[in-house]
């Protein structure tokens, strides 16, 4: 299997002495949609910075489509697009100029870049704002300018550092559709996010990094498979003074009108309803206790 990205034993110590990466290794297959997750300060942006040569590495190897960045950085860069976590364009320039200039830096002359830029800006709903000064855009649209910039040279590997942070729900869903589409067209995507639902929706494989070390590297399916207990919350019609005891279902009364239960995956929730009905307890509504993935995640980075 060909790899879009291979990282081995990557270490980074910042000048101040912070050891951001303590030797991480992982690989992302060509065509994959990969999530790099981890708490604040885990080292995600440092890793991405090193891949894009915006940050110098202390030790280790980075290969992009088999090309070692220490051997042919320029060639590796032509295959890579990066959307940084922080805004990195001049706010005083027009949206269209920013993207055309970025294309120019990749060696694409203006006459060839213009039609591409038009297509890209239209695709990202930025075309109407093409003549606006970038600083006047709202945060979500600034993020789109960054995406347009990163894709203008048609990279085979796209890395996005928290592309949906601060983006509203509608825009976020639009962005998901867009990213899924370019992934289906063959672009390998790596993304970091703090929204686990996003990773669950988009990504096939995930790596979890914590304290500068990879603590997990697996497929989303396997990870979800590990979740064998689900929590449910029942809103009751009439108050109870104590939780009912039902065999196999540990029930907890959070307040007189709210009942919480942890249900093992093998058990049918029907059985629980039957028991509740026979005890004369009426359930008005039911919801998932919280994001299951989030709990698993917290457990993994707590270790």
């Amino acid at each position: 299997m060909a790899y879009a990205l291979e990282i081995s034993d990557l270490k980074k110590t910042y000048p101040g002495g912070t050891q951001a990466l303590k030797g991480i290794s992982f690989a992302v297959e060509e065509g994959d949609f990969y999530a790099l997750l981890g708490p604040n300060g885990a080292g995600k942006s440092s890793t991405i910075g090193i891949i894009g040569s915006l940050v110098t590495k202390t030790e280790g190897k980075v290969k992009i489509f088999g090309i070692d960045v220490d051997e042919d950085l320029a060639l590796a860069k032509t295959m890579l697009g990066v959307v940084s976590q922080e805004i990195n364009f001049s706010g005083f320039e027009k949206v269209i100029d920013i993207v055309v200039t970025q294309a120019g830096f990749y060696g694409i002359p203006k006459s060839i870049a213009l039609p591409k830029v038009e297509k890209m800006l239209k695709r990202l709903s930025l075309w109407d704002k093409r003549n606006d000064q970038a600083r006047t855009l709202s945060g979500g649209y600034k993020r789109r300018v960054m995406i347009a910039k990163a894709l203008i040279h048609e990279p085979k590997l796209l890395i996005l550092d928290e592309p949906t942070a601060g983006v509203d729900i509608e825009l976020r869903r639009e962005m998901w559709t867009f990213l899924k589409e370019i992934n289906q067209n063959g672009t390998t995507i790596i993304l970091t996010t703090h929204y686990l639902e996003e990773a669950e929706q988009l990504c096939r494989n995930i790596g979890i990094i914590d304290g500068g070390l990879i603590v997990e590297n697996t497929s989303m399916r396997k990870l979800l498979g590990r979740l064998n207990v689900q929590g449910f919350v029942f809103d009751l019609e009439s108050p109870l003074d104590k939780a009912p005891e039902i065999e196999g279902f540990p029930l907890k009364l959070e307040d007189p009108l709210t009942l919480v239960v942890a249900v093992n995956k093998e058990r049918s929730i029907n059985a629980l309803f039957a028991e509740l009905t026979s005890l004369g307890i009426k359930v008005n509504s039911m919801r998932n206790e919280s994001n299951r993935l989030e709990e698993l995640f917290i457990e993994m980075v707590k270790k």
Partner: peptide, 18 residues
Amino acid sequence: YSVKFQRSIEELLISPMP
């Protein structure tokens, strides 16, 4: 200095320009 300050230097560093 402004290019550094605004981080738009990343536009140059990420590109294959020597």
